[in-house]
Design a binder for these strands. Structure first.
Length: 500
DNA sequence: AAAAAAC
């Protein structure tokens, strides 16, 4: 078995890798690092979770030890499809480049331009970019691309999906033809192959076994539900509460507006929850992700921005609130759990109108997914009103529970009818969650003190949109300090760990 | 029936 020390990496890099606790390279690393160090072009076919990022970060660090950056002339350039992925690559440079004195510049949208410009002025060894912001800097004449020695195109197939290829071509034209190019893609459809042929010269092709279907360590279940959103939400809450070993979970919705809505609902029901989608401001996106990774937030409601590539180790559960329209996205979504051989669980809520999509999923993964407690044909009648309580499925619920539930349904009804899909409002709630996070525990969770403690954006005009027309935070008037009174019902693991 | 990305 190969060892990192056998790949030709520098001492500085090797010592940082050892400090990070890695001894053995993954197949993509073992295959790509030696030729990359010899300045060969690389065509890497690998999914995230295979150690792909380090397979270009480590050789780049070694190669960058020779030479120095000049003002406005970056030496290397990495293109990523989403801001979060770009930030994640930057973190890798910090981790493995801790023994180097390299200037790393992260050029992504949604954050201040000036700070990025100052970094470019100082001379960047590594630029990590989303295409739009990079082109923006180029068009302002702030960047000279003629000094770029290494170009990395990551997640090429996803760039294609997202319509970034014209931008990538424009950027590539600005970079000298003598450069070294490292090109990565999870799949190799004909368009991507054509692109690779144009961008790469005599590349070393490194392919690691594609995770064609879902990891066997992930338990997958379909859960039948009626299509009404409040019924799906009730179903989801029941599911979450019934999990014995839920450490943390990502809950996927198909639409941004549903992310916002579901987030609000779970928050009102007292869950430790965050949200992530592309219309949220960048600071909230970053904070949410960091808090979820750190375990400060147990549930993350997300759009497919979080489906691919994000390195969140050890997610115990994935819930699909909506069945993904494209079956491939299902594989990516549930791939967020059961990583590195760990076990994971995934639940997908399926309604009658989703059947063609759930069928497509089973076809793609080549297996039938078991139903949790009866398929759609066994689904009980929908509840007629909230006051009746939900009819138990297969008599699972006793009467006492139903009584308890009718009160809860009233609360749910209230929460749901006070409905709003405003992104600004979601962000307002995000602010609150983030603001109270460190001190938050079972006791102060709903306290006014925590609620009104909001640092940061209060002065900016944008934040005014986050308040309602009466100039106060919407949440402050719609329910009391203990809005839903679940008390002991919330499992301990769902609460923010104030005690730990 | 969607999401993502520049201002």
């Amino acid at each position: 078995m190969t060892n990192f020390a056998d790949l030709g990496l520098s001492q500085k890099v090797l010592s940082a890798v050892a400090d990070a606790g890695y001894a053995t390279p993954t197949p993509i690393q073992a295959g790509a690092i030696p030729p990359a160090l010899q300045r060969r072009d690389i065509l890497g076919i690998a999914q995230t979770g295979t150690g792909k990022t380090a397979s270009f970060v480590l050789p780049m660090l070694t190669l960058l030890e020779k030479g120095r950056a000049r003002a406005r002339m970056p030496r290397t350039l990495i293109l990523e499809p989403t801001r979060e992925l770009a930030a994640q690559v930057a973190e890798n440079f910090d981790k493995y480049g801790k023994n180097h004195k390299l200037n790393i510049a992260l050029l992504i949208g949604g954050v201040s331009f000036d700070e990025q410009d100052r970094k470019l002025e100082r001379g960047a060894d590594v630029l990590i970019c989303t295409p739009g912001r990079l082109l923006d800097h180029c068009e302002r004449g702030k960047l000279l691309m003629s000094g770029v020695e290494i170009l990395v195109i990551d997640e090429a197939d996803r760039m294609l999906d997202m319509g970034f290829i014209p931008d990538i071509e424009r950027i590539a034209k600005l970079i000298p033809f003598t450069r070294q190019t490292l090109f990565f893609s999870a799949t190799m459809p004909p368009e991507i192959q054509k692109l690779a042929d144009r961008f790469l010269q005599n590349p070393e092709r490194v392919e690691v076994a594609r995770r064609s279907s879902t990891a066997i360590t992930v338990t997958q279940r379909f859960v039948a539900s009626h299509a009404k959103d409040y019924e799906k939400r009730a179903m989801l809450r029941d599911l979450i509460r019934s999990q014995d070993e839920l450490k943390n979970a990502i809950i996927f919705c198909n639409r941004k507006k549903d992310v916002a809505e579901l987030f609000r609902s779970l928050d009102r029901h007292g869950f430790s929850v965050g949200a992530l989608h592309g219309d949220m401001d960048q600071r909230s996106r970053m904070t949410m992700l960091a808090n979820f990774k750190d375990g400060n937030i147990k549930l993350l409601v997300a759009s497919d921005v979080a489906a691919r590539g994000l390195d969140i180790p050890d997610v115990s559960h994935v819930f699909n609130f909506d069945v993904p329209i494209h079956a491939e996205d299902y594989v990516h979504r549930i791939g967020r759990t059961g990583r590195a051989g760990r076990s994971g669980a995934s639940f997908t809520i399926v309604t009658k109108r989703d059947v063609k999509f759930s069928d497509a999923i089973e076809k793609l993964i080549g297996q039938k997914v078991e139903w949790l407690s009866g398929d759609l044909s066994e689904l009980p009648e929908p509840m007629e009103s909230h006051e009746n309580g939900r009819r138990g499925r297969d008599g699972r619920r006793d009467r006492k529970k139903d009584v308890e539930r009718s009160g809860r349904d009233r609360a749910e009804h209230k929460a749901d009818t006070a409905h709003s899909d405003s992104v600004a409002e979601l962000e307002s709630v995000v602010e609150r969650v983030v603001a109270v996070k460190p001190e938050r525990n079972a006791e102060n969770k709903h306290s006014q003190a925590g609620r009104n403690n909001r640092p940061g954006r209060a002065q900016t005009p944008a934040n005014d949109d986050n308040r309602d027309r009466r100039g106060r935070n919407r949440r402050d008037h719609d329910d009391g300090p203990t809005p839903l009174g679940f008390g002991d019902e919330i499992p301990a693991f769902m609460l923010i760990a104030g005690k730990a």
